[in-house]
Each structure stands twice: as C-alpha cells, then as structure tokens.
C-alpha cells in the first residue's frame, strides 16, 4: 500500500507541474496575442504611459519575452515556480495577495461542495438502492423517470425559480414567524451571507447537488444490480444470511467502488456548476473569483487560482485512488 501511495503522489506532482506549464504557455500566448494585460488595470480610462509602465513592472509583465510571439517565457515561469515554492502566489491587479483572496473564497466553495456531496450521496444511494432492489417495478420506473427529469432541469433554471419565486415569500414568512435571525429565515435568504455561511449555503448546495444527482442515481442502480447477480451474493444468500446483511455487507460495499470514483470525477464537474451557483446566490467563492479574474485579464489571479484548483483536484483524485485501493485489494497489486 505504501509503495502504491508513493507512486500516486509522484504522479500527482508530475500532473500538477504539467498543468502549471500548460497554463503558463497559454497565458503567455494570450498576452503575446492580445497585448498588454496591464491595460486592464485601468478599465475604461486611457492610462498615461508612466502609469502603464509602473503597472507592468509591478506585475512582472515587463519581461521582453511577452512581446515576442512564440517565446515560451521560461524565465518568468521558473521565477513563478520559485515564488510558489515559497508560498508567494502573487497579487491581484489591485495589490491584494492571491492567497488572501483564496483564503476568503475557498472555504465558501468547500462548504458548498460538502453540502453538494452529501446531497449526491444521500439522493444517489437512497434512490439508486431502491431502484436496484425493486428492479422492473413501478418504483424503479418512477426513479428512472425522475432522474431524466432532473437531467432536464439545468442548475440555473432551478436557482432562478427558487430565488425569484420561492425564496422571497418563504424568507418573509420565516422572518415574521420565527424572527429575522432564526434558522428558517436564514435558510431561505435569497443570497449568501458571510456571517451565516453554513445556513445560507444549504439550499443552494442542495439544489446544485440535486441538479447533478441524476447520474449518481443511475450509477448506483447499475452498480448494485450487477452485484445483486454476482456469485458471492448468491453464495451469501445460500448460506442463509439475512437479506439485510447481504445487501449491507456484500452489495453496498462492493458497488461502492464506481460510486467513489464518480465522486472524484463529478467533483471537478461541480466546479462548473459552482460558477453559476456562486454567481446567482452571490457566494464569494473560487468559481466566481476565477470568472471575474478571467474577465479582467488578471493574470496572477487566474494562474494562482487555477494552480490551486488543480492541486485540489489532484489531491481529491489521489484520495479517491487510495479509497479505491482500500475497498478493492486487487487494485494495489496491479
């Protein structure tokens, strides 16, 4: 197991390095093609040359390689790697450290992901499990129909309907009934509130989780069905074990492997949904920060945030691989 983990960690570092290098090449090319990102600092105003020069120097964009199309700008890349190694992730165009931005934004996104993952697992395991156990019956068809319905409702529609139709009257009612700082009033607040981060994230998280749960329901159903028909389950039944014992110890555990893998993959997909959710519910999170940084051509923030996200993804994948190996001993010996 130790060697397996070491190997995966080293592969993770290599992936991260490649991601950073690719990102660097892309942003360098973008700067070389589109011209000076320091211009973005000034928005609508035309800066005086002295101001432009000052800003270029401040953000390390004065290296001549940025003016030569096709030059990979290895110098600034090595410099950046050195800075990152020392924990310096640079500053935004307005001089705010990227680490500071991330430390405010990341906890909100992580909270959102916690709620989303719980929702996935709760909905996926429950409905998928029921559908598998009652294969071909009305509840199976109902659940499969529901999963298609969920797929047909994109997250922004769910959020729009919730925010403009349900949240205002619900939040007014809860305030009048329970008081303005009560849990129900906070749950139905139309927007995120940093003072009540958990409470105001639950509903958006559940909606985002719900929107992504259809694939989970089908995956759990398929995985459990396969296991129900497996030899070891038949053996377990023939030994006279109770149906409950069989399904908990032999079916659920064995069918968990693809589900855990899917959590890792869908996690990265959820980030795309998070950009929309964060924007609509006014959550200051990683998706929104990245979105705005790209719009503002804020190079340091884009590179810093994407690097951190890549690192998180690599770590999540690693954890998934380890859990996978723990669940199925065959894997670590391959």
């Amino acid at each position: 197991m130790g060697r397996y983990i070491t190997r995966r960690v080293l592969q993770g570092f290599l992936t991260l390095f490649l991601v950073m290098f690719l990102l660097h090449l892309l942003t360098t090319l973008a700067i070389q093609l589109n011209g000076n990102p320091a211009q973005a600092f000034f928005g609508d105003r035309t800066p005086s040359p002295s101001q432009l020069a000052a800003v270029e120097t401040r953000y390390g964009l004065d290296d001549p390689c940025y003016d030569q199309l096709g030059n990979p700008c290895i110098g600034p890349f090595v410099e950046r790697l050195g800075d990152y190694a020392q924990g310096d992730f640079g500053e935004s165009l307005r001089g705010r450290p990227v680490t500071d931005i991330v430390s405010t934004a990341a906890p909100n996104t992580l909270r959102l992901f916690v709620v989303v993952t719980i929702t996935w697992l709760a909905i996926g395991m429950t409905l998928g499990g029921i559908a598998a156990r009652r294969r071909g019956k009305a509840s199976d068809h109902g659940i499969r129909g529901l999963s298609i319905l969920i797929d047909a409702l994109p997250i922004f529609v769910l959020l729009l309907v919730y925010k403009y139709i349900f949240s205002v009257p619900l939040s007014r009612w809860a305030k009048d009934t329970f008081g303005s700082d009560s849990l129900p009033a906070l749950l139905f607040k139309p927007s995120f509130s940093p003072q009540h981060a958990w409470a105001t994230l639950i509903v958006p998280g559940i909606l985002l989780g719900l929107a992504g749960s259809a694939a989970f329901i089908r995956l759990v159903r398929a995985a459990q069905l396969e296991t129900y028909n497996a030899d070891h389950v038949r053996t377990a039944r023939s030994k006279g074990l109770s149906e409950r014992h069989v399904s908990r110890h032999h079916v659920v555990r064995n069918s968990a492997i693809p589900v855990v893998t899917a959590v890792g993959i869908v996690f990265t997909e959820a980030l795309a949904g998070a950009v929309i959710t964060e924007g609509m519910m006014n959550i200051y999170g990683m998706g929104g920060v990245l979105w705005k940084a790209v719009q503002d051509s804020d190079v340091s923030v884009v590179i810093g945030v994407v690097t951190l996200l890549a690192a998180v993804t690599v770590v999540v994948m690693l954890v998934v691989d380890v859990v996978y190996a723990a669940l199925d001993p065959r894997i670590r010996y391959e």
Binding site: V168, P190, E278, G279, K292
Partner: peptide
C-alpha cells in the same frame, strides 16, 4: 457580483 440584489431587497 454581477447578479442583481433585487430578491434580497424584496425579502
């Protein structure tokens, strides 16, 4: 961020 605060005003 970009989105409107109108729902919060109504609430």
């Amino acid at each position: 961020s970009g989105d409107s605060d109108w729902a919060d005003f109504e609430a």
